[in-house]
């Protein structure tokens, strides 16, 4: 026993071949994420919903491509997305965004094949949250917005954080220029900080009541939001992609934006 006791204390005895070691865990220098820039927004009306995004893809100060759409049709019948009734916009890490889009698309398709009816937007919204939370500890690094029409035919919009927290909203901006666009939408869609002229003094002043906006107005707001964002954010530009879902289907519109 004396030979055992002769070792310096605090060190484990080195006689066993299979010795548990308290080796420092090596750090991996590989970082699995990147930011591909760009911005998206969604607005609902009484009988429609709009999802929009720019088509620029960036890596740092470089523009990868001027034509990488961020808004997708989900659960369509073919490659073109024909027959879809749900829209999804993805912004953040594009590879994750693409993987997420493909997964949700497969889920919505499978739902239709298995149940013989289309998935409701509410069900899809919940499912998307579950998918995101399923990767809570290795998240999809994306901000997504889901849009469609609810059971009453009203525009429905759901916004998410990367790990699946979500809520239904009237409007939402996401991505690089979200901090520029969101206050604009608050003011122009929800009439925040707008008051009824001459309705009173100080606290008696009546806030202007928000009403669902007509489609033409909303489309113009989207264009204004992006032309302004392009001026102030380097990662936003090239083209504006808009998808409008109504009871008649989905319409896709492209607009040029500044390419600088």
């Amino acid at each position: 026993m004396t030979s055992l006791m002769g070792h310096p204390s605090g060190q484990t005895v080195g006689y066993s071949f299979s010795q548990p070691t308290a080796a420092p865990v090596k750090e991996h220098s590989f970082y699995p994420y990147t930011d591909n820039g760009g911005s998206t927004l969604g607005i609902t009306g009484s009988d429609f919903a709009i999802l929009a995004g720019d088509t620029r893809s960036t890596s740092g100060y470089s523009i990868n491509s001027r034509m990488v759409p961020k808004v997708f049709k989900i659960g369509g019948d073919d490659e073109t997305g024909k027959g879809a009734h749900i829209l999804l916009s993805v912004v953040g890490f594009a590879a994750d965004g693409n993987a997420l889009k493909e997964r949700l698309d497969a889920v919505v398709k499978m739902y239709k094949y298995q149940h013989g009816k289309s998935m409701s937007v509410t069900a899809c919204a919940q499912r998307l949250s579950t998918i995101l939370y399923g990767k809570r500890f290795f998240p999809y690094y994306v901000h997504v917005i889901l849009a469609g029409l609810d059971e009453e035919g009203k525009g429905a919009l759901y916004s998410y954080d990367p790990v699946g927290s979500y809520e239904r909203e009237e409007c939402r901006a996401a991505g690089a220029a979200s901090s520029l666009i969101m206050p604009f939408l608050d003011n122009q869609v929800k009439f925040k900080n707008q008051y009824v002229p001459g309705s009173g003094e100080g606290h008696a002043l009546q806030p202007k009541k928000a009403e669902p906006l007509p489609r033409e107005t909303v489309e113009q707001l989207v264009r204004d939001a992006f032309t302004s964002a392009v001026e102030r954010h380097i990662e936003v530009g090239d083209n504006l992609q808009m998808m409008i879902i109504t009871r008649d289907g989905i319409e896709e519109i492209f607009h040029p934006l500044k390419k600088d």
């Binding site: 893809s57 890596s59 990868n64 491509s65 034509m67 890490f93 594009a94």
Partner: peptide, 15 residues
Amino acid sequence: SSADLLGTTFSSPHL
């Protein structure tokens, strides 16, 4: 079209 180590993809007439 392009693809990289992260799985990022994009396409353009010149890359």
